[in-house]
């Protein structure tokens, strides 16, 4: 449907050329095509509107209608716009503190535990001493899951299977990390819905108790329109530092990336591209832009 966006736009623009005048009105149908492609890629309805409004301005500015390859120029403008919207200044992760504390949060099943393992693996390879902390006391076998991953990558996992208070587990873990000379503590938390007040309070309390240098919000790249609601609430509660986009080894367009960046203005820092512990990559805005456009 969107594979041939460039062709479609070429056609749309050429039809317009016949009408001879460049105006808001005759560019509208082309813009509508772009908006539709964005919504098909799961870009939030309102964000898609904002983006296409800006694209319209630029297209008129750059005289798309009289270009030799109007479709191509149009797509280039869109791509630039998306890249810019998702990029901004490259921000690294903040691992200050001894130990540095990284808190992982997000919806159920988004890929937090898997990412925690991957991130530990990545940092371990840089020669750091890592401690993984199992703060998901709810999901059946969540602790075992993290322990299995820890074993796979050779990273210690701190857990208190009998303790029903995630905040105190996190605190105890940090004391433990200090006594073992760990540089970095990665805290895996339970999945939670943004509307679950008790659970949102819990993660807020974990944050307060351990003051992480980095809080990462983990999002499934298949997420649809709701991504903005969730990201907004998690950001209000946690003021997170970055986003991790998971399951990009599939074929989801990943429009949620654009929506989230637009709504909370936090950088996307990592992408997860598989179930294996090595399947972690840094985020490239230009690649993501192409992906969203289906190119």
């Amino acid at each position: 449907m969107f594979e041939n966006l460039s062709d479609k736009l070429n056609k749309a623009v050429k039809t317009l050329k016949g009408q001879g005048r460049i105006s808001d009105i005759n560019i509208a149908s082309t813009i509508k095509e772009v908006r539709r492609a964005l919504m098909d890629a799961d870009v939030n309805y309102k964000v898609a509107k904002d983006v296409t409004d800006r694209v319209r301005e630029k297209a008129i500015d750059r005289k798309v209608m009289i270009a030799v390859e109007p479709g191509q120029l149009f797509v280039k403008i869109i791509q630039e716009e998306l890249t810019e919207l998702m990029g901004g200044q490259a921000q690294s992760i903040n691992l200050k503190g001894s130990p540095a504390i990284v808190l992982i949060a997000g919806l159920q099943g988004s890929g937090k535990t898997t990412f925690s393992g991957k991130f530990a693996n990545y940092l371990k390879k840089q020669g750091r001493q890592i401690l993984l902390v199992a703060c998901d006391i709810y999901r059946p076998a969540a602790i075992t899951q993290l322990q299995v991953l820890g074993e796979q990558i050779g990273v210690d996992v701190y857990a208190e299977p009998e303790n029903k208070d995630a905040v105190s587990i996190a605190q105890n873990a940090i004391a433990h990390a200090k006594s073992k000379g760990k540089n970095i503590v990665i805290i895996d938390t339970a999945g939670r819905l943004a509307v679950d007040e008790v659970m949102m309070k819990e993660v807020e309390n974990i944050k307060k108790a351990v003051t992480p240098s980095e809080i990462l919000f983990v999002v499934d790249s298949m997420t649809g329109q709701d991504a903005v609601n969730t990201a907004k609430t998690f950001n209000e509660r946690l003021d997170f530092d970055g986003v991790v986009l998971t399951k990009l080894d599939g074929d989801a367009r990943g429009g949620a990336a654009l929506s989230i960046k637009n709504v909370v203005n936090k950088p996307i820092k990592f992408i997860s591209t598989g179930e294996k512990m090595e399947a972690l990559d840094v985020f490239y805005p230009d690649r993501m832009a192409s992906r969203i456009l289906g190119m």
């Binding site: 098909d40 890629a41 799961d42 919806l107 099943g109 499934d220 298949m222 997420t223 649809g224 329109q225 709701d226 991504a227 969730t230 599939g250 074929d251 989801a252 367009r253 429009g255 949620a256």
Partner: peptide, 11 residues
Amino acid sequence: LDGSTGQNAVI
């Protein structure tokens, strides 16, 4: 299907 999934669910 995860209820929060977007258009990829069709695929």
